[in-house]
Design a protein around this nucleic acid. Structure first.
Length: 206
DNA sequence: GGCCAGGACACCA
DNA sequence: TGGTGTCATGGC
């Protein structure tokens, strides 16, 4: 597994990924929850409904009635779970008044475990938040990444944890690199991993 | 009309 | 610890 090679190939051939597409950190948090097991189109429909109603202001979102919040996030699917997740995660951020550096220092290396305790936050969402909210250079082993590593014959991981446990980013990776690496992989996945033949004609296959 | 998309979680052995 | 069912929408 040559992470540096992969990162450079993706950067050279695909350009800036433009991830995470959001104007604010609360918006990133919402996107991370709403996109769970669905496509960005559906997640964005829910995000737009939320924006129209609350301007994505955390206090406005937290003060929504549960049934109202459920209705707003409906286009993203799994709306009851996601409404609960939004309340859980936003309540936690509100406890710290969204002071990311304070939270980072407070939890230290226990940040990931704390994230995993929140309703609706599993390993992928926890790592997305670490990378895009808390500016930490960690590896995100989402489904596109697992498919890519499998296509490269690097590792055929069945679960998120299996790949995550066996991959470490190069020491020199900054959080910006981790952000871009993840964005590039998912952009690559959408274009080249729909079928095995797609990968075989990509710039990553030999 | 079935399949799938940037998961998480409860339940079970 | 690992396997399986459930949660649900919208586009193709």
């Amino acid at each position: 597994m040559d992470i540096t090679w992969l990162y450079n190939q993706l950067k050279t051939n695909m350009g800036p990924s433009g991830w995470w597409p959001a104007d604010s950190k609360p918006e990133i948090v919402l996107g991370a929850i709403l996109v769970q097991n669905t496509n960005w189109r559906n997640a964005d429909a829910a995000l737009t409904a939320l924006r129209d109603e609350t301007s994505l202001d955390p206090n406005s979102i937290l003060s929504l009635e549960n049934e109202r919040l459920i209705k707003l996030v409906k286009p993203s699917g799994f709306y009851r779970n996601k409404a609960r997740a939004i309340k859980s995660v936003f309540s936690w951020f509100n406890q710290f008044e969204w002071e990311y550096d304070t939270m980072k220092k407070y939890y230290g290396t226990g940040l990931r475990d704390q994230l995993l305790k929140l309703q609706g936050v599993g390993p992928e969402t926890a790592d997305v938040l670490q990378v895009y909210i808390f500016d930490k250079p960690v590896f995100i082993a989402d489904s596109y990444t697992r498919r890519l590593f499998s296509a490269l014959n690097w590792m055929d991981a069945k679960t998120y944890q299996e790949l995550w446990n066996n991959v470490s980013l190069p020491k020199w990776f900054t959080f910006e690199d981790a952000q871009e690496f993840h964005g590039l992989i998912d952009n690559f996945g959408k274009e080249y991993l729909k079928r095995p033949a797609d990968f075989n004609q990509s710039f990553l296959s030999k």
